[in-house]
């Protein structure tokens, strides 16, 4: 039994689900769509609540060795790095977005909040990337005021058989009145 008293006067009704989805999708689209390099690779993001999955649809220009054929190692590294940065940026914006302080309607590439910068990024190639779609997810393992650590993993046909994993450190954007940091 989860019954509650009926809402009294002055109680705020929950936000319609379509409004919530629209706001989140608009922020994500602004975050991703503003970066030319993400478009160049063709990466798109699938969102379920706050969970993001990066999708890299296969395309011939992503190949390294065409004889095997295999995805270019640089593409794999870039895919994981993009996944990590978007995950971190998304987490940074989440509270502002949900509270409504971030106006999704006014977000465009020129008006995005400042995003984290990569300090270092390390990629392990576990097996060769096949000429198929690839997927990746990132997990923030530590986040602080100035630095964050993020892990990411990419797979293709089998979620349990990743073809690459990565970990990286990121410099968080400086906040107003923070004294400022530059990378």
């Amino acid at each position: 039994m989860t019954g509650r008293n009926p809402p009294g006067p002055g109680r705020v009704p929950p936000e319609p689900v379509q409004a919530v989805k629209q706001r989140r999708d608009a922020v994500l689209a602004a975050l991703v769509g503003g970066v030319p390099y993400i478009r160049f690779l063709g990466i798109v993001f699938d969102r379920r609540g706050d969970e993001l999955t990066a999708v890299l649809p296969y395309s011939d220009h992503l190949l390294g060795n065409p004889d095997l054929p295999a995805l270019h190692g640089g593409v794999t590294a870039a895919f994981l790095e993009v996944t990590a940065i978007i995950e971190l940026s998304w987490a940074l914006l989440w509270d502002e977005m949900e509270s409504g302080r971030l106006d999704a309607a006014r977000l465009d590439p020129e008006n995005l909040p400042r995003l984290p910068k990569t300090i270092d990024f390390s990629v392990d190639y576990l097996r060769s990337g096949l000429p198929r779609d690839a997927y990746a997810r990132a997990r923030i393992t530590r986040t602080g005021r100035r630095y964050a650590s993020v892990r990411a993993e990419a797979w293709q046909d089998n979620r349990r058989r990743p073809f690459a994993q990565a970990s990286g450190h990121f410099l968080m954007p400086s906040r107003e009145g923070d004294g400022g940091t530059t990378a």
Binding site: V35, P36, F40, G74, A77, A78, E81, E110, F121, V123
Partner: peptide, 27 residues
Amino acid sequence: DARLVGDPRTGVIHGGAVSALMDTCGG
């Protein structure tokens, strides 16, 4: 190359493109 830009406000090339250059160079 404008297609490789990571920050459209500054025009700085994305780190991923630098990674791809480094990986190819190493190979």
